[in-house]
């Protein structure tokens, strides 16, 4: 996530384990085709390799995107006083995957938030202009990891208001059942955006006008100290929000 304004293409390298099911491969291919069509970007290069049975677990896909940007927005541009916006509900993807992978047999509205963000980010950049100073996608490790990285790279801290963080009812239910913090699990269709305070409202309004940004919210403020740390205001008190260690696991206690 770097503020691309014109998408050029995707690379796609595939390594397949010998004997991988043909139907599964077809399904993956169809899904990639649909995703590319939705995002309006072609796969332009790549290579396929086959490895022996047992040398890898099924299939490995590696992609990289390339694009043009009029101004590159990285994840290290925060300074004290900036505001932090998340573009929608957090934790949906990670909790949905965890529920499926651990065969929790949860029925309901829990599903991954996977979505292409190009168009949404365009709206953010045109609304906020130079005031948009940092962006990052909170994938593995969730919002907690992404904000730690953003804070460490910029030499600042973050004060996060827990009750402003949007969480869907289904994700909240799963997080209570499993004892896992929605801030610690992966998202696949969300962005964290750091903005100068004077453009915060404008960027937020632009996001909320977009179908993928309806639940966008201001969730925190950049602070000078403590550097590299997240201070979480729970409404009851404050604590540091740690980075998750390894893959979150369902708890009994």
């Amino acid at each position: 996530m770097m503020g691309a304004t014109k998408l050029l293409g995707l690379t796609c390298g595939v390594i397949i384990e010998e004997g991988f099911e043909r139907d599964a491969l077809d399904r993956i291919q169809a899904s990639m085709r649909a995703a590319c069509r939705e995002a309006g970007v072609p796969i332009v290069t790549g290579d396929t390799k086959v490895m022996g049975r047992g040398e890898l677990d099924g299939l490995v896909i590696n992609t990289a995107g390339f694009a043009l940007a009029s101004r590159v927005v990285r994840d290290n541009g925060l300074k004290a006083g900036d505001r932090l916006i998340v573009t929608g509900t957090v934790g949906d993807h990670g909790l949905a995957v965890m529920a499926a992978r651990n065969k929790l047999q949860l029925a309901g509205d829990l599903k991954s938030d996977v979505a292409p963000l190009f168009d949404l980010v365009q709206q953010v950049l045109s609304a906020g202009g130079e005031g948009v100073v940092a962006m990052k996608d909170p994938t593995r490790g969730g919002v907690a990891s992404a904000l730690h990285e953003m804070a460490a790279k910029a030499g600042v801290g973050v004060l996060l208001d827990e009750r402003s963080v949007p969480v869907s009812d289904a994700a909240r239910a799963a997080s209570e059942l499993l004892g896992i913090d929605p801030l610690h699990v992966a998202n696949e269709g969300k962005a964290l955006i750091g903005v100068r305070p004077e453009v915060a409202d404008r960027v937020l309004a632009a996001l909320q006008a977009h179908p993928l940004g309806r639940d966008a919210a201001l969730i925190g403020t950049v602070i000078a100290e403590p550097v590299g740390k997240l201070v979480l205001d729970t409404g009851f008190g404050r604590r540091l929000l740690a980075e998750p260690e390894g893959e979150p696991l369902p708890r009994i206690c």
Partner: peptide, 11 residues
């Protein structure tokens, strides 16, 4: 029993 927890159901 099927039990509802904030919109998510579990046995």
């Amino acid at each position: 029993a099927v039990v509802d927890f904030w919109g998510v159901q579990k046995q």
